[in-house]
């Protein structure tokens, strides 16, 4: 897999912490691999919306990647609940083109961004940088050695 210059937290230079929410184990694995290639750290995983909320409260990640269609509670509702509790939460919706309306709904309820499934690493990389804004910094030198 292509290597990216790691994105670090600008406040402490530590790895960016992620919560990955998807009901497919394969999709979680795939996302985790991509994120690790960005130098990120998987703080938690969840397979449904309910777990996502409790996991978010437990690990307080920098970014949550959220699937839309899941059992128990859908991604939109989970995103909404998380944002209600944590107004600064950065939630990126991950979904296929067919769920565009749901993405719009999630964006209206506080999600920050979206990426299309299947996730392209270079797209997600740009999205992460954008969502982190000033809180993220690209460690230019570290990438070359990795």
């Amino acid at each position: 897999m292509e290597q990216f210059s790691p994105i670090k937290r600008s406040k402490d230079g530590q790895a960016v912490r992620y919560l990955i929410v998807d009901d497919s184990v394969f999709a979680r694995k795939n996302l985790a691999r991509i994120i690790e290639s960005f130098g990120g750290e998987i703080a938690g995983e969840a397979g449904d919306g309910m777990t996502a909320i409790t996991e978010y409260e437990r690990c307080k990640p920098d970014i949550a990647l959220m699937d839309i269609t899941m059992p128990q509670m859908e991604g939109i509702e989970a995103a909404e609940k998380i944002v209600q509790q944590n107004p600064d939460a950065r939630i990126v919706m991950v979904s296929s083109v067919g769920y565009q309306e749901n993405i719009v709904a999630a964006l209206q309820r506080g999600a920050r961004h979206f990426v299309q499934k299947p996730v392209k690493p270079e797209v997600l990389y740009e999205v992460i940088k954008y969502v982190l804004g000033e809180d993220g910094v690209v460690a230019a030198t570290a990438g070359a050695g990795a």
Binding site: V97, Q100, E101, I103, V104, L107, Q108, H113, F114, Q116, K120, V123
Partner: peptide
């Protein structure tokens, strides 16, 4: 060009 979801894109700009 990368974005295949104009409706979602529209929502993002609007937000």
């Amino acid at each position: 060009q990368l974005c295949a979801m104009p409706i979602a894109a529209r929502q993002m700009v609007a937000s």
